[in-house]
């Protein structure tokens, strides 16, 4: 027998707003990061919905929002479909223009506090099963650095703290500013320095050195936000 509560679930309205936003953010970030290129055709609605694990209704709402933002163009008829459009100001610069230096500094302070506290706790509490994913992410990033792997690495460090709240904050900060921070360091020297800092964070956690783990994790965030703020200051409003 199925309980009446469970039966009701079948017909309950699905909270789709969050899913629409998640799809919009995912595709918009992919366009900003250049993972999807100008003029590229998106898969069919049915296929895209299935791959993203959302309904076609949710997907259509997301596409409509992306069309309004000028990031997607839909053409009808033969050879029709949804195509990626990269507006001239959609890259790092475009995103940066939407943020003030004061906002960037505030995010930077918040992020350094979260990342530092999480790394310190991780050093005191992590076990081999927490370190294995960190090592795996370092290896994968050595082969092919990407904002996606970078984000995963930092969430894994936060999870090693054993604090659900710190991890939730890290996830939120990653969604807000993660790709932007990564882009600001996307040069050979920047990549090199980031890789060294990631390595230093993992080593301090492995040694159980909480103070050092906190220091390097804070430094890592502050260096990246410094770069971002320098870039922002150079932009003409």
């Amino acid at each position: 027998m199925v309980s009446s509560g469970a039966r009701l679930a079948v017909f309950s309205p699905v909270d789709s707003t969050a899913r629409v936003e998640a799809v919009v953010r995912r595709l918009a970030d992919a366009i900003v990061l250049g993972l999807l290129t100008d003029g590229e055709q998106l898969p069919s609605e049915a296929e895209l919905a299935a791959r993203l694990g959302v309904s076609t209704v949710t997907l259509r709402e997301a596409l409509m929002a992306l069309r309004q933002r000028g990031l997607v163009e839909t053409r009808r008829g033969r050879g029709g479909g949804s195509f990626v459009r990269v507006p001239p100001d959609s890259g790092l610069e475009g995103r940066l223009r939407g943020l003030t230096v004061a906002e960037l500094r505030d995010v930077s302070d918040h992020y350094a506090a979260i990342a530092g506290a999480a790394a310190r706790l991780a050093a005191g509490r992590s076990l081999p099963s927490d370190l294995a994913p960190l090592r795996r992410s370092l290896d994968e990033m050595a082969g092919c650095p990407s904002p996606r792997l970078d984000g995963r690495f930092h969430i894994e460090v936060a999870a090693a703290s054993q604090s659900a709240r710190l991890t939730q904050e890290e996830i939120r900060l990653q969604a807000d500013i993660g790709p932007l921070l990564w882009l600001s360091r996307d040069t050979p020297e920047g990549q090199d320095e980031m890789a060294k800092q990631h390595q230093a964070i993992v080593e301090a956690i492995e040694r159980g050195d909480g103070d050092q783990a906190r220091l390097v994790a804070e430094r890592h965030v502050l260096d990246a936000t410094d770069h971002l703020i320098e870039l922002r200051l150079r932009l003409q409003d």
């Binding site: 509560g5 009701l8 309950s12 791959r51 694990g53 990407s146």
Partner: peptide, 26 residues
């Protein structure tokens, strides 16, 4: 919280989502 179970929906393809290669979890 509504009392009615929800299905977990995630992009599970590791090619598009670095998070969700679930075969590493214990």
């Amino acid at each position: 919280p509504s009392g009615q179970p929800r299905q977990l929906l995630r992009d599970l393809d590791p090619a598009s989502s670095a998070f969700y290669d679930y075969t590493h979890w214990e």
